[in-house]
Design a protein around this nucleic acid. Structure first.
Length: 529
DNA sequence: GAGTTTGAAACT
DNA sequence: CAGTTTCAAACTC
């Protein structure tokens, strides 16, 4: 695997510096913006990043310059759209699917939200600048490669409730990373995981363009699917929702629809930012967690935090639980199954045979019992199927873990542990402040100015400083320990869901720690004063 | 590729 | 809050 990625990595590493050094041409500026705006992360496939911290700082400054230049000179949103390269579209990041959703979301919505906030809050001068750049970024964002959660459709987990990820973006590294992801796109693993997918905004084609440009939505869609050899490239195919409802995978994932989408009358585009934001808000007002990843990892690890955390088993679960009646939770109709997690007590499914973990964790005199053998067989086949994926992902994760020390995204992922079930509505205040939604962005922006370049140690430090008790209630533990442990339940033959990227381990404690850590990861590009 | 099934989301 | 409708993905043929 790694070998196959090497070329990509090489390309990325060689390209990033170039782009950063050439600001002269608009197109390049745009590119840089795109990348930056895409919520790029600090993570790199190659842990031994190309630049030292010092050089990173320099580069970051350069990036900021780029942003400033763009704000002043780049006016062509339309052109921006054209910037996208085939590579960007066709390639899927082999590795970072999980985080893409977050990234995009931050850029598209959170940033936008931030911008708004800043507008509202005129008093904050620094925010103004940010807002401007944000806007640009948002616009450019559309060009990013569309990525779908690998998992979901193979979605890979999307961990986070879209928080602050935006903050990460503006570093040279980001650029590199994004590029890498794009290149690797096709390799994306199809892991059932997160919901948040990662799609990247499309280039700014207006809805009209989108429809007309696509020779055949279906064809296009298939093409992308094929490209990834998985469903990872899949995009939405909405016809009536205008991509402004949660029916739309893109919208639900917090990303704009992009060219590969086969949607009709799509409003989920940067050009309709206001509409999107308004709709989003409305939906969030109804359900604060609407845009939170559906699959939540109750425990994850942040590599940098400690070894133990990295060994944590990934116990994930669906935030709200499924309600399957006929699929026995053995098909992708089941969100739990689709997300690669076992069903939990919060599920209301009937005849659960979820291969990742059954609702009751054991066959207790229910239909399941009768079909035990059948279920077993199913599990076996399913498990085998996923086993490969899991292994692949594991490898990837391991690689990342070592390579990517705490990336904000990763951190944010950890935050995903949402404790409450759908029936128990989380305190809104908590939810909003924490993340998950566009509002999260505001928060992050405000918090922010954490410097992305800050050494990991800083994150650690910060996390340590924050007492667990301060953690918002909703984030504290998963409210239901049982659910959190669910995947590890006696019956669940698979203790580690496919998504679990980290080894087995007791999770609760680590999960909480992770959450704390994520707080610091809202670094923003704004200069610290 | 068209049609069916399924369950989440939205609506009443 | 329960029941119904709408919707788009997943699935089947």
């Amino acid at each position: 695997m790694q070998n196959s990625l090497d070329p990509v990595t090489r390309f990325c590493t060689s390209l990033a510096p170039q782009l950063m050094q050439n600001d002269v041409n608009d197109e390049q500026n745009v590119r840089v913006l795109d990348i930056v705006g895409s919520g790029g992360q600090l993570e790199t496939e190659d842990p031994s990043s190309q630049y030292g911290e010092a050089s990173q700082l320099e580069r970051t400054e350069q990036m900021e310059d780029h942003l400033n230049n763009c704000m002043v000179s780049s006016q062509s949103e339309k052109e921006d759209n054209k910037v996208e390269t085939p590579m960007q579209f066709n390639c899927k990041p082999a590795v970072l699917n999980l985080q893409r959703g977050l990234r995009r979301r931050c850029l598209d919505f959170e940033m936008a939200g931030a911008r708004r906030k800043s507008l509202d809050n005129v008093s904050n001068s620094s925010s103004n600048m940010l807002s401007q750049s944000d806007e640009k970024i948002t616009t450019n964002d559309k060009q990013l490669v569309p990525m779908k959660p690998g998992g979901e459709s193979s979605r890979c987990i999307l961990p986070g409730i879209g928080l602050h990820l935006n903050a990460l973006a503006k570093t040279s590294k980001d650029y590199k990373i994004i590029k890498c992801e794009s290149l690797a796109y096709g390799r994306q693993l199809s892991l059932p995981n997160s919901t948040a997918d990662i799609h990247s905004p499309t280039g700014g084609q207006g809805p009209a363009n989108e429809e007309f440009n696509q020779n055949s939505p279906k064809k296009k869609r298939r093409r992308f699917e094929h490209a990834g050899e998985t469903e990872s490239c899949k995009r939405c195919n909405c016809k009536k929702s205008k991509c402004l409802k949660l029916y739309c995978e893109c919208f639900a994932a917090g990303v704009y629809c992009i060219e590969p989408c086969s949607c009709q009358e799509c409003f989920n585009k940067p050009i309709h930012e206001d509409t999107v934001l308004a709709t989003r808000k409305q939906i969030e007002s109804r359900n604060p967690l609407a845009f939170a990843p559906k699959v939540i990892r109750s425990s994850d690890s942040v590599p940098e935090l400690g070894e133990e955390s990295s060994k944590t088993p990934a116990s994930a679960r669906h935030k709200r639980g499924c309600n399957c009646k006929k699929s026995s939770c053995l098909k992708k109709y089941c969100e739990c199954y689709q997300g690669g997690v076992g069903c939990s007590i919060s599920c209301r499914c009937e005849g659960c045979k979820n291969a990742y973990g059954r609702k009751d964790g054991s066959f207790i005199g229910t239909e399941a019992e009768l079909d035990e053998e059948e279920a077993e067989a199913c599990e076996k086949s399913v498990a085998e199927k996923h086993q490969q994926k899991i292994e692949i992902q594991k490898n990837e994760e391991q690689r990342l873990d070592s390579a990517l020390p705490t990336t904000p995204l990763r951190l944010s992922r950890q935050m995903v542990s949402l404790p409450f079930s759908s029936k128990n509505k989380p305190p809104r205040s908590s939810v909003f402040s924490i993340g998950g939604s566009s509002s999260g962005l505001y928060t992050s922006q405000k918090l922010g100015k954490p410097n992305i370049l800050q050494p990991e140690s800083k994150f650690e430090r910060h996390s340590q400083i924050v007492p667990e008790d301060e953690m918002p209630e909703i984030l504290q533990g998963d409210g239901s320990p049982s659910t959190g442990v669910k995947t590890a339940s006696p019956n669940s033959k698979r203790v580690c869901p496919p998504n679990s990227d980290f080894g087995p381990s007791p999770g609760r404690r680590t999960g909480r720690k992770l959450i704390l850590q994520s707080i610091p990861s809202f670094p923003s590009l704004t200069p610290q004063h």
